[in-house]
C-alpha cells in the first residue's frame, strides 16, 4: 500500500447491536421465556475519519460512546452494520492473515497471555502464529526487553505477575510481530502513575522507531495529552470533534486558568478578592492563593492589572485541565 494515503479510512460507518431487554425479577425472567423484547442499540452512527501512517491519535469519549466498538470494527472483530472501513489497504472484517499480521489490538482489561504459563510461552506462540523469522524475533524481543525490562518476569507464570508486569508482557506479546497499526484500548487502566509513564514512553518510542500508527483510547487524559497530537472525540456514537488537542480546548473552554500566590497582610484580603473578581471568575481563594478563570481575550490586560494592584509572589497561566474540558463537552451534548 502506498504510504501517502490514509492507513485508516472510515466512511459513514455505523454499528448497531440487537440487545435483549428485561426487568429484574422472577416474573420478568419467566415472561422472557414467552416473549422477548429486543432493542436496537446504535453504538456507532455514521462516523467518518481518516488517519495517516505514523500518526498518534487519541480516541476520546465517555463510557458507552462507541470508542471500543469502533476499535473492534477496525481490528476486524465486528462487522459494521453499514459504511466502509479500510485499514492498511484491507477490509478488516475479512480478517485476512496479511491484515492481521499488520495490526495489533491491546485491551487493558483483557489479556492474550496464557494465564498458567510464563509469558515466554506466549511470545513463542506468537512467533509461530505470526510466522516471525527466528532472527527477527530475537532482535525484537531483545529490544522490547531493553525498553520494558522483560527478562526478569517473562519466565514467571502470568498469574503470578503484578498488573504492571503483566501489561508490559501484554504489550511485548502484541508487538513481537512489529505491527504497523496499534489499536490501544485503555492500555494503562489500573496502573500506577510511574507505570503509566513507562508504557506511554514505550508507545511513543515504538511509534517513532517503526513509524507505526497509533489509535489510543484512554480515560487518563495525561495519556492522551502526552502521546496524541490529534484527538477524535466521539459521543453517543457520533463524531464530535476531530483535530488537535489545543483546538479542542479552545473550542470548549476559551479560557485560561491563572493561579496567583499573593503576599501582604490579612487585612488586604478583602481588597484583593475584589480585584480578582473584577478580572475573571474566581474559582478558588484561600486568602493567599487564588485560581482565576479568564477569557483568552482579556488575559493580557487582566494579568497586567493584577500585577499592578496586588502583591503577586507567583503566577502561572495554564489551559484548563483536559478532564474538565471533556466533562464540559459531554455535558453540552447530554439530552
Amino acid at each position: 500500500m502506498a504510504s501517502s494515503g490514509p492507513i485508516i479510512s472510515v466512511e459513514r460507518m455505523s454499528k448497531h447491536y440487537r440487545v435483549h431487554q428485561r426487568s429484574a425479577g422472577l416474573l420478568s425472567a419467566l415472561g422472557s421465556l414467552v416473549s422477548r423484547r429486543h432493542d436496537i442499540k446504535r453504538a456507532v452512527e455514521e462516523i467518518s475519519f481518516a488517519i495517516s501512517p505514523g500518526e498518534r491519535v487519541g480516541f476520546l469519549g465517555p463510557n458507552g460512546a462507541g470508542k471500543t466498538t469502533t476499535l473492534k470494527v477496525l481490528a476486524g472483530l465486528l462487522h459494521p452494520t453499514s459504511g466502509s472501513v479500510q485499514v492498511a489497504g484491507f477490509v478488516p472484517q475479512r480478517r485476512e492473515a496479511r491484515f492481521l499480521q499488520q495490526i495489533t489490538l491491546v485491551m487493558g482489561q483483557k489479556q492474550q497471555l496464557l494465564w498458567d504459563l510464563p509469558p515466554a510461552d506466549t511470545f513463542q506462540l506468537n512467533r509461530a502464529v505470526y510466522d516471525v523469522p527466528q532472527a527477527v524475533f530475537n532482535d525484537t524481543l531483545a529490544e522490547l526487553d531493553r525498553l520494558l525490562g522483560l527478562s526478569a518476569i517473562s519466565r514467571i507464570p502470568t498469574r503470578q505477575l503484578s498488573l504492571g508486569e503483566r501489561m508490559k508482557c501484554e504489550l511485548a506479546a502484541a508487538l513481537l510481530h512489529r505491527p504497523r497499526v496499534l489499536f490501544l484500548d485503555e492500555p494503562t487502566i489500573g496502573l500506577d502513575v510511574s507505570m503509566q509513564v513507562t508504557l506511554r514512553e514505550f508507545v511513543r518510542r515504538y511509534n517513532e522507531r517503526f513509524g507505526a500508527t497509533v489509535l489510543l483510547t484512554s480515560h487518563y487524559m495525561d495519556d492522551v495529552a502526552a502521546l496524541c497530537p490529534r484527538v477524535i472525540v466521539i459521543d453517543r456514537g457520533t463524531l464530535r470533534y476531530d483535530g488537535d488537542l489545543p483546538g479542542l480546548v479552545r473550542s470548549i473552554r476559551p479560557h485560561k486558568r491563572v493561579t496567583l500566590r499573593l503576599g501582604g497582610t490579612p487585612c488586604d484580603q478583602g481588597r484583593a478578592e475584589d480585584q480578582l473578581r473584577r478580572v475573571g471568575e474566581l474559582l478558588s481563594w484561600d486568602g493567599t492563593q487564588a485560581v482565576l478563570q479568564i477569557g483568552k481575550d482579556q488575559l493580557r490586560e487582566g494579568v497586567a492589572h493584577l500585577l499592578g494592584v496586588l502583591p503577586v509572589l507567583d503566577l502561572t497561566v495554564e489551559d484548563p485541565p483536559l478532564e474538565e474540558v471533556m466533562r464540559d463537552l459531554f455535558e453540552r451534548s447530554a439530552p
Binding site: 473492534k72 472483530l77 492481521l100 495490526i103 489490538l105 483483557k110 506468537n126
Partner: peptide
C-alpha cells in the same frame, strides 16, 4: 468475548 484474542491472530481459531 475472549474469542476476540483468537480472532486477532492470523491462525484460524479452530486450528488452534
Amino acid at each position: 468475548g475472549i474469542m476476540s484474542q483468537r480472532l486477532l491472530r492470523p491462525v484460524h481459531p479452530l486450528v488452534a
